[in-house]
Design a protein around this nucleic acid. Structure first.
Length: 271
DNA sequence: GCCCAATGTCGAC
DNA sequence: TCGACCTTGGGCA
């Protein structure tokens, strides 16, 4: 379930359970065994997220860099940890808690220099808005690009942390057709999108799920049944192909864009 | 059991 | 533009 909000939440959760402790580090699946051995006995001193990248800082040995990709999952539990299944890439366990990582695209030990290189190739992250994120850096690229805004929002060099759900939802909330070119997004529109993403994604971190529907459009307010979907949140268009738009009642459309599913309401969102 | 899809990214052609 | 990679869960036989 990995968009940026998930990763920032994980940074918090790893910290809550393990910061200041020296967890036992293992890799039951094997692919991280050498590094796990190096790290056992070292204190977890920092956790950090930038976009969809998670960094766990250990006193002894630099950083663990984690990227969940499309399938990666993390599962926390209370000690004592049960025997791990053979797909667990990384387990941390201390006297009170354990956490298992499965299916990540990346789980690697990196140096501060390598970590910096990752930051350098990522765009501003709305969830770092109080720290180092500068939305104008994103707009500089967007305003010069003939690429669609839908593709630009998914480009982590442009803006870090937005995925397929936030992409679809924020474009709906701002009534922007996903195929509009980046250069046709005005500064005011970009400011509004960025501000909205900061708020939506912060709420995503708090609730650990994506909700984008405004109070006046909630199922209760509109007298419709609550959404039932395994991704958990209440949304306007994501995975709602062929269903009626919450606002205009028209049919939500779907299409392939750069090998991802795009969803939008052609009536509410203008070219 | 098999087949498919899924909130992601990279590299080869 | 396409396949590869990583894993799980749901639908269907």
């Amino acid at each position: 379930m990995p968009e940026g909000h998930t990763i920032h939440r994980l940074a918090q959760d790893y910290a809550a359970a393990f910061l200041g402790t020296t967890p036992h580090v293992t890799s039951p699946q094997g692919k991280f065994s050498d590094a796990a051995e190096l790290l056992t006995g070292s204190e977890l001193t920092r956790t950090e997220a930038h976009g969809k990248h998670l960094f766990l800082g250990f006193r002894a040995a630099d950083w663990i860099h984690i990227h969940l990709g499309l399938f990666g999952k993390v599962n926390f539990g209370d000690a004592p940890a049960p025997p791990p299944t053979d797909t667990v890439r990384l387990r941390l366990a201390n006297s009170t808690a354990y956490v298992d990582l499965r299916g990540p695209t990346t789980c690697a030990l990196i140096t501060p220099t390598e970590k910096q290189a990752i930051h350098d190739r990522l765009g501003p992250d709305p969830l770092r808005a109080d720290d180092d994120a500068d939305p104008h850096l994103a707009y500089r690229r967007i305003s010069r690009s003939r690429t669609t805004i839908a593709a630009l929002l998914m480009d982590q060099k442009v803006i870090a942390g937005v995925g397929n759900v936030y992409r679809a939802e924020v474009l709906f909330r701002h009534r922007i057709d996903p195929y509009r070119a980046g250069k046709d997004i005005t500064p005011a529109q970009w400011d509004a999108i960025w501000t909205d993403l900061v708020e939506l994604m912060r709420e995503g971190v708090r609730n650990n799920r994506i909700d984008t529907v405004r109070p006046e459009h909630t199922p209760e307010a509109m007298g419709r049944p609550p959404r039932v979907d395994d991704h958990g949140g209440e949304v306007y268009v994501y995975r709602r192909a062929n269903l009626p738009c919450h606002i205009c009642g028209g049919e939500i459309r779907t299409a392939d864009l750069a090998a991802r599913n795009l969803f939008w309401c052609p009536d509410c969102q203008t070219p």
